[in-house]
Design a protein around this nucleic acid. Sequence first.
DNA 1: GCACTAATCCTGACAGTGACTAGATAGAGG
DNA 2: CCTCTATCTAGTCACTGTCAGGATTAGTGC
Lengths: 208, 208
Amino acid sequence: MARNQSTDKKAYHHGDLRAELLRAAEAVLEENGIEAFSLRAVAKRAGVSHGAPAHHFTDVNGFLTALATIGYERFIETQNARQRSADADPRAQLAASGLGYIDFALESPALFQLMFSSQKPDKSDKSLAAVADAAFDKLVQDIGNVHNSNPRENPAMMRDVMAAWAIVHGLADLMIAGRTVRALQLGDMNDSERDDVLSDLILRSIGK
Amino acid sequence: MARNQSTDKKAYHHGDLRAELLRAAEAVLEENGIEAFSLRAVAKRAGVSHGAPAHHFTDVNGFLTALATIGYERFIETQNARQRSADADPRAQLAASGLGYIDFALESPALFQLMFSSQKPDKSDKSLAAVADAAFDKLVQDIGNVHNSNPRENPAMMRDVMAAWAIVHGLADLMIAGRTVRALQLGDMNDSERDDVLSDLILRSIGK
DNA sequence: GCACTAATCCTGACAGTGACTAGATAGAGG
DNA sequence: CCTCTATCTAGTCACTGTCAGGATTAGTGC
């Protein structure tokens, strides 16, 4: 009676707990890593009881599915951001997309692993499948722009798609694991030098 | 009194429980995946109490460190096996090494993820670091054989190393996640066709 | 053969986890 | 004012890793 949702402490009903939980979850995820993720820790961080999350995301798997979904949205946006500030040339755009891929992986490594290496998100979930497909479609389009045709109608060109995906994904995953910085001497470079090196590697996938 | 270690049931002292636990752990790992790995399940499978593993591997992290170590040993052996049955040409040998890399990832996906994507193994552990370095050294050597010189003395050649590693690792990780079979139509191919496609992708890393 | 020591393994307990249940609370519509 | 429904809390269960204490066995010196 005394307190309402704006003035004091907290209300019994949060208002938008779902979004708040997702925010808290991201923080917990990047702090503790995916392997130490805990629903209760998320609830605690959101200042809510340990059973509350179940009401918005039935399962912990449901929770992680939702997290992966918003992950893909930001993933695509990170790639687009790179492309907007890059040259219009199709190859430069492809490289920029790959750099955005790596940007995202390094900014949100745990979320990245959740999206690509975890069994827990429900891949048959429609919204998750939709954004995951959208991410793949984007790559196909980037490759198509380089060749000025549709890779889906050309198996050989589809190999370009997979080569580009593989090298970018491999770089991202190895960089997260800390296995590439020393070998590439990335520590000694400024941003543009680093991007040049990575772009060179990325473009090898389509035969330079 | 009635039973001894050879005739009946089991002895109090197992004899070589450490090895037995590692075997059981691998089975559990590949059955349930790394995310559902449980010390107690391993102990149960080995027919031993839940506290027994702690005596051979202080921690669960210690356990996973040991698992990752034997993983790297078999990882290298899998690559060598591919190379033995391949042409002696340095490029063919490099491709074969990559195919072995992928072989291992598909045979033991959970172990592969443990080795490359998990935070739990103790990377400062000497035996683990040694085999991990050996695996990397092997790759450096394979690239060196192609160029007939030592990549460690040439930053540009070191980029070949990372490009080859990235594309192979990316392929392996994406294949585990089931994201590449359809795009590459691998399902419609026999083994040698499949290997040819993958070898083509791998060799793009060093400029074909 | 015998005792002593160290290694091995078991049992029981603890806090933390996800999932489930019943109940308390608050907002919306009549 | 009253009811309905979504939201959230609190308590419980089985499971997890870790730890401490005790039981059993193997190995060693005598």
